[in-house]
């Protein structure tokens, strides 16, 4: 869903080291206007460092970084007028109320959205007079997003917006992000939740150890590595793997966690052949199902380890 027009973010050969640790190791990517671009990776992958360099909070060691076509190092003040920022784990002036904080942050910008409108946009109407220290985790995160929207930004950075939230609060935040996307905002977010990347992002970059391992739409990323889909059922000695491997479309048969898994390029043909075989042997296959590879599988395949460990 990449749109035409000059990219809102352009990163080329970006490097950033902390001492001997290469936090960001020569990454390049672009984000198009109106696109939701996600960086997916485990903690310590270099996502936050990248996003904070784009926000003008850190200086890159080398590489070029542009936002709205302007060099971030040279034009930080005018870029900051047009971006919205939500940082990971920030508790704002704890003793100011939601309204006071939004008014205050609004005053930092040349143009700002009326506070009432922001409060409604993130559904904090009932907590408008509450001090930020008394908000729940989900409410604080919504406030933090409202603060990122205070200048009606064209580009919004969300750094792990749903980390630590319960599933319900996460869902409501996703709806909020989708609403922003529908309004044509460009969004760059980081996350270590695959579902979140799959749900929200037009394109995803998978990052680990400071490098981008793979980049593209979610179906692209999965299709590039996993052309097969899988049929799985409870392993049964009456259904020998050797025979199953020769069924139509099957590229590989394996036993994983007590289940037989048949990877297939022709899932319909394989299922038909498999059911016929099971019938001829009078076997009722238990817990039969089909699955497609997920981002988690892509990540596992890329790095040899799970995303959340």
């Amino acid at each position: 869903m990449t749109q035409s027009g000059e990219p809102v973010i352009g990163v080329a050969s970006l490097c950033k080291c902390y001492g001997d640790i290469k936090a960001v190791d020569g990454i390049s990517f672009e984000v198009a206007p109106g696109e939701v671009f996600g960086m997916l990776g485990p903690n310590g992958a270099g996502k936050t460092t990248t996003i904070e360099i784009l926000e003008g909070l850190r200086e890159p060691d080398s590489g070029t970084v542009t936002v709205f076509g302007m060099d971030v190092a040279k034009h930080a003040p005018s870029i900051k007028q047009r971006i919205g920022v939500q940082l990971q784990t920030v508790s704002l002036y704890p003793r100011l109320t939601v309204t006071e904080l939004l008014d205050l942050f609004g005053s930092f910008y040349a143009h700002s959205v009326p506070t009432r409108q922001l409060i409604d946009a993130v559904d904090l109407g009932e907590r408008a007079k509450a001090r930020s220290m008394n908000l729940s985790g989900g409410q604080q995160q919504r406030l933090s997003i409202a603060l990122a929207l205070v200048n009606d930004p064209e580009l919004i950075f969300l750094d792990e917006p749903t980390t630590g939230l319960d599933p319900q609060a996460r869902r409501s935040l996703w709806e909020l992000v989708k609403g922003l996307q529908a309004k044509g905002k460009s969004i760059m977010l980081t996350t270590h939740y695959m579902e979140e990347a799959a749900e929200l992002c037009d394109r995803v970059a998978i990052m680990d150890h400071g490098r981008i391992l793979e980049m593209g739409t979610v179906p692209e990323l999965i299709g590039r590595r996993f052309k097969e889909r899988a049929v799985f059922f409870d392993a049964n000695p009456k259904l020998p793997a050797g025979q199953l491997g020769k069924l139509v479309g099957v590229t590989r048969a394996a036993v994983e966690d007590g289940q037989t898994v048949l990877y297939s390029l022709d899932i319909a043909g394989t299922i038909g052949a498999f059911l016929a075989l099971a019938d001829s042997l009078s076997v009722e296959p238990g817990n039969l199902g089909i699955r497609q590879a997920t981002l988690e599988d892509v990540f596992l395949d890329l790095t040899g380890r799970a995303l959340r460990d």
Binding site: L57, V85, L87, S91, F105, F108, Y109
Partner: peptide, 16 residues
């Protein structure tokens, strides 16, 4: 306190 909580950093991301 404000530095530890990231308030200074958050304000650093505004044009202030």
């Amino acid at each position: 306190q404000q530095r530890e909580k990231g308030i200074l950093k958050r304000i650093g991301a505004t044009p202030l």
